[in-house]
Write a protein that binds this DNA or RNA. Structure first.
Lengths: 325, 325
DNA sequence: TTGTTGTTGGAATCTCCTGCCAACGATTTG
DNA sequence: CAAATCGTTGGCAGGAGATTCCAACAACAA
């Protein structure tokens, strides 16, 4: 008696042929395929994976047959990829990497971890506030883990929109479109300089006063860079930029090397530049007070752990403001 | 406990326990798992996937046992995810999405396609040159396919570095670090305006002449926006920005709506704004000639198809320059 | 030419995985 | 209390996949 094929639910979205093909992919085949690509040799690949060579050969044949594609050029000594094979290799690699992430993450849960929160944040937040805020969070929720990646503010928004992470922290001026936003922190920009700089010793500075000197810029996508450019423009003067560097520490080192003035947030200076013998003078301009905001796609439908993190970040900020009063 | 998960080193040889766990993941289980999450109900999920409920139940139990993790809270009516389940759900989704890509791409090869090239490019290249260049490429290589994504120049570089694509096209001024670069095209910026604008009718314009009027900016990460800001700054004047929009077409529509001047590449204007009854006047400034460059990680080790594309793009540009002579 | 080595591919066999059916316990609903 | 849902368990059967053995083939050395 042949197998009775079960009628699939008619309202399922993918077409029958698509699902049929999708089902013919399996992870061991992908693993073996990658092994062959690495070794360029089926026999060695089989050994490495602890399986008979003929079994591997069969799998590959079946796979090629199923998709009607040739993956390898069978050469006298070894196997070489066809274009189709190269395409598969690329996707197979990322798929298996993902599977590995699954295994790692789940085994973390098995060892007591109770939840993950995926976050994106800009440099300012990561350098200045997140270390302490996250550490406080872990104190209360020792069994949670955080997966944090740095991106410029614009990309943070994009990542949250696309679901790459649950919670994002970016500049308050970033266009967060349809996302929900909450106030996080306000930092204050300071002008970093060598103690022998003409401006050193001042109580505070207006940005325009700095425009007669060389500046060191952050990378061009950073909101500090964009905002200071804009401010210079508004002031009707130019910013004399000598170099753009990727991080606050790099800015400070450039300042130290007498390349010019740096413009970074106050807390970042304390963390990064304090021990470097530099001076930091507060910026008097209104835009020197920069808001950072928390963005989420939908606060109501956050995961339980994401909710915890969001509440924590907001509570920390609220406490801090209470203390200031 | 580490605060932040470290990115896995791709070269790392997996530990025995890891591989053991990795092997226990399989795609049908993931598919079923997702179905259960969608339906919040094992029985319906089983129906949807055309499989007996008992089989699904057993698979889930075995999976949970293998990882020592509870994925669901079994409720009287349906199943609800635990935090571990939510973590799995996220990864399972992207994994299956990837598998689907595999199936789609391979079946393309089965239907005659002979190769894929993954590309990243900035907006200027995509709007102005790639349509014709790619179409010429297809004329010669009808069986190849191109996977093209738009990103700002900085992200193009990043994507190529990370292996997200083989070939990138970005602004000549972008910092391409360790990548190999080749000249691609040079475009010329034009100032777009309504025919009734005071500046209309001029032969050419210096950028400084436009600074007395309102401007419409591209999105803040775009190189045109960054460069024009910088130029305004250098000129010691401000740019009166009324709005930032995401594309060249949007710029033209804003110009049409009398919001101010736009600054876009000449070819983009021909393509996008020609039929809108607008005037375009060339920018006289040196930086109005913008180089676009092709970037690759390593030209020697490109795939055969990638090599074809690179050669084509470079040849097209060489021909074009010969024609100009 | 001939033998050796290393390679892929095929046939027969066997094992174990996995899905089906039917029955059961638990809980809610009428 | 019965009926309806829902998830789980056990027995059974079929098949996918692995193993072993063998054939075909190319490259290379004697």
């Amino acid at each position: 008696m042949p197998l009775v094929t079960i009628e699939a639910d008619p309202q399922r979205s993918p077409t029958p042929s698509e699902t049929a093909l999708t089902r013919r992919v399996d992870l061991t085949t992908l693993r073996l395929f990658i092994a062959i690509c690495d070794e360029q040799n089926l026999t060695r690949a089989a050994q490495r994976e602890g399986i008979a060579a003929s079994a591997v050969s069969k799998r590959m044949n079946d796979f090629e047959l199923a998709f009607g594609v040739t993956l390898f050029k069978r050469l006298a000594k070894g196997m070489a990829l066809t274009p189709a094979g190269e395409a598969l290799l690329h996707h197979a690699r990322v798929t298996l990497l993902n599977v590995e992430k699954i295994a790692v993450e789940l085994s973390e849960y098995a060892h007591g971890v109770r939840g993950h929160v995926r976050m994106l944040a800009n440099l300012s937040a990561i350098v200045q506030y997140l270390p302490e805020d996250l550490s406080a969070f872990f104190a209360g929720h020792g069994l949670l883990r955080v997966d944090l990646q740095e991106r410029p503010s614009g990309q943070v928004v994009r990542g949250i929109e696309e679901g790459a992470a649950e919670i994002g922290i970016c500049s308050g001026e970033a266009d967060s479109r349809a996302l929900e936003g909450f106030h996080y922190r306000t930092d204050h920009l300071v002008v970093v300089m060598r103690p022998d700089h003409p401006l050193a010793g001042r109580e505070s500075l207006a940005f325009t006063e700095t425009l007669d000197f060389d500046h060191i810029g952050l990378h061009t996508a950073s909101s500090i860079y964009l905002r200071s450019q804009y401010a210079a423009t508004q002031a009707g003067k130019g910013m004399r930029l000598r170099i753009n560097v990727p991080g606050f520490d790099a800015v400070c080192r450039m300042v130290q090397a007498n390349m010019g003035l740096g413009l970074i947030p106050d807390c970042a200076f304390e963390v990064v530049g304090a021990g470097m013998g530099l001076s930091a003078i507060p910026l008097r301009d209104e835009w020197g007070r920069r808001a950072l905001k928390i963005v989420v796609r939908d606060a109501v439908h956050l995961s339980a752990t994401g909710r915890l993190m969001l509440d924590h970040l907001r509570a920390v900020e609220a406490d801090r403001r209470d203390d200031d009063l």
